[in-house]
Amino acid sequence: MSSNNMNLTLKVWKQKNSQDTGRFETYQVKNVSEEMSFLEMFDILNEELIREGKDPIAFDHDCREGICGTCSMYIDGKPHGPWQANTTCQLHMRAYKDGDTITVEPWRANAFPVIKDLMVDRSSFDRIIQSGGYISVNTGNAVDANALPVEKDKADAAFAAAACIGCGACVAACKNSSAMLFLSAKVSHLALLPQGGPERKTRVLNMVAQMDKEGFGSCTNTGACEAVCPKEISLSNISRLNGEYIAAGLVSEK
């Protein structure tokens, strides 16, 4: 079954560090098997580069099972490559054929500066969470878990929003580099649950303020984020976020 029969051309963004301007480099990868994952193909290329005394390609990756949200390649114009509802690490070479040329770029957004090659700095996402993406409950304060029933549909919707892996594909795909899908997933997750109630208004106001400060663009509802999201986070979360924000902003008394 394992037939190493593909030869591919890779055009990969190389950038020494955040100050460097960067450029595309072209690589030939030989004997690629269709059972390899996309990142394993990069592993093999890197091994070859190291042996030849060349600089390997730096890219972010960790769990390689589609849940940690670390991997972040913009492949032939699409975050995480051609498959739907998929992360880069779960993309397999079955998606390609012999002779293909593949262009790989880092996520592009001012709020995601390139660190090296295909690695970007997504700490802006952490700062958005710091600005309010939590429920303020100190350890030990909690009441019994079943003291507060939650309507199943709402719990399911909250879970669907909370499935966000924070990879940043939404920002990468958006023509405005907007982080609204990421932000709306967190706001929706917490707004849909009764536990999130007490901080519902301040949370959304503070998180949007932080998002604006980080330099993300605003949302024009094109839906590109939803189309590339590996966890299929729904665009309707953005509408919910808008409603939450407008309601909170207009009724706030300060």
């Binding site: 409950v137 304060n141 909690a142 019994d144 878990a145 719990a155």
Partner: peptide, 22 residues
């Protein structure tokens, strides 16, 4: 048991039954 209480209070969306309980 306290872990479950704490996580639910933090907003961890555990699976629930139709009655709204865990």
């Amino acid at each position: 048991t306290s872990i479950i209480d704490q996580c639910v209070a933090q907003g961890v969306p555990f699976a629930r039954e139709y009655g709204g309980l865990l």
